[in-house]
Simulated assay, not measured.
Amino acid sequence: MVETVSFRNKEVEIAGHLHLPENFNGENKYPALVGIHPAGGVKEQTIGHYAKRLADHGFVTVVYDSSYQGASGGEPRLLEDPTTRVEDARCAADFLTTLPFVDSDRMGVFGICAGGGYAISVAQTERRFKAVATVSAAPMGEGSRGFLGHLSPVAEQIGTLEMVAQQRTAEAGGAQPLYAPFVPETLEEINESTPDLLREGYDYYRTPRGQHPNSKGRFLLTSMDKMFAFSAFDQIPELLTQPLLLIAGSKADTKVFSDQAYELSKGPKELFVVDGATHIALYDVPEYVDQAIPKMAKFFTIL
């Protein structure tokens, strides 16, 4: 059962899907989950697939398009603002608390890819989330300041910020916005040296495998200053005391981020490695998703 819902993050209307358990009874009280989609993704893609499967295990689950993206409102379009993304998740929690069949004391959060980074970030300061799980976590701030766990030289980071500053000035004067792709936009951009994350990202986001008209696969270039200023992991040792489940593929080039989060966490934690899986394979390949979902469902029974 899926219902189309909406809620607000300040003045922005957020478009969501509410996944309900089979044999749902509105007179009962259910544990509830907030699901956060990957950067460039929308609620109909991998996050919606996970939401449906988790609802099958008895969890009321809400997923949504982030502010400025997909079917949600907000200008400028395709802005990737990590602080707003975290607030979207808080607003999703607000929404769940208004539903009479949700037990507000039994809420958790999960995310995939960048959504995993945002799930970790929001859980550090949102105590309504009693547990947090991630799949192929990739924190947007840490990821933007380097590549796959390798920090870029400071001079290179400053050069990027100088470029963003120039573009902001140009747009303030009437220039057209510029966009950067999250994944390659054409096959010609892919060669033998292309990392698996980007090669498989093309296959998921640019082909019928996972393609969706609301998922543009790119972001506003002037998002970069906000991304550079954001850290998803900075308060993990002190503030992330809730149970943490990190799911990563053994062949994922982003596994380094799950390893980092696991090492930083001082609370209850588990790193579940799916043998043979890559980052994108955990989006939709049954062999691997069929391992991740039962693990998450069992984990969230602590709610």
Rank of each mutant, 00 (worst) to 15 (best):
Phe59His: 05
Phe101Leu: 11
Pro243Leu: 02
Lys269Ser: 08
Pro76Thr: 12
Ser121Gln: 09
His17Tyr: 12
Ala119Thr: 11
Gly58Trp: 01
Leu54Cys: 04
Tyr204Ala: 09
Ala32Arg: 00
Ser265Tyr: 00
Val135Asn: 10
Val102Glu: 05
Leu239Val: 03
Thr186Met: 08
Val256Thr: 14
Phe182Asp: 09
His49Ala: 15
Met163Ala: 14
Ala232His: 01
Ser215Trp: 01
Glu3Cys: 11
Thr194Lys: 10
Val154His: 05
His17Lys: 11
Gln235Gly: 02
Glu126Trp: 03
Pro208Trp: 08
Gln167Cys: 02
Glu142Asp: 10
His212Thr: 04
Gly249Thr: 11
Gln166Ser: 07
Thr4Lys: 09
Pro31Met: 06
Val274Thr: 06
Gly16Leu: 00
Val135Lys: 09
Pro184Val: 04
Gly41Ile: 05
Arg106Tyr: 12
Val122Tyr: 00
Tyr262Gly: 12
Ser215Leu: 05
Gly26Gln: 12
Val109Pro: 06
Leu54Lys: 07
Val2Glu: 00
Arg206Ile: 06
Ala277Gly: 11
Thr84Pro: 05
Ala39Ile: 14
Glu126Asn: 08
Gly174Glu: 08
Ile47Thr: 13
Thr61Phe: 06
Lys295Asp: 01
Thr134Tyr: 01
Lys295Asn: 03
Arg106Ile: 13
Thr46Glu: 15
Arg77Leu: 12
Met1Trp: 00
Asn23Arg: 15
Gly26Thr: 09
Arg8Tyr: 01
Thr169Ile: 15
Glu11Phe: 12
Ser258Gln: 08
Phe233Val: 09
Met227Leu: 08
Leu246Gln: 05
Phe24Glu: 10
Val289Thr: 15
Ala123His: 03
Ala297Pro: 07
Val256Pro: 01
Gly117Tyr: 02
Ser66Gln: 02
Ala281Pro: 09
Tyr50Pro: 07
Ser258Met: 03
Pro181Asn: 15
Ile280Leu: 13
His212Asp: 07
Ile190Ala: 04
Leu264Phe: 00
Gly111Tyr: 08
Ile36Asp: 04
Gly116His: 00
Ile302Thr: 12
Gln167Thr: 11
Met140His: 01
Val42His: 06
Tyr179His: 12
Thr84Ile: 15
Leu221Phe: 12
Asp253Phe: 06
Ala175Tyr: 03
Lys226Arg: 15
Val42Lys: 03
Phe219Met: 13
Glu87Arg: 07
Ala123Tyr: 01
Tyr118Pro: 02
Gln242Tyr: 00
Ile190His: 04
Val135Gly: 09
Gly116Ala: 09
Phe110Ser: 07
Leu197Asp: 02
Asp253Arg: 12
Glu189Val: 14
Glu188Asn: 10
Pro184Gln: 04
Asn214Arg: 14
Thr207Arg: 06
Lys298Gly: 07
Ala261Lys: 03
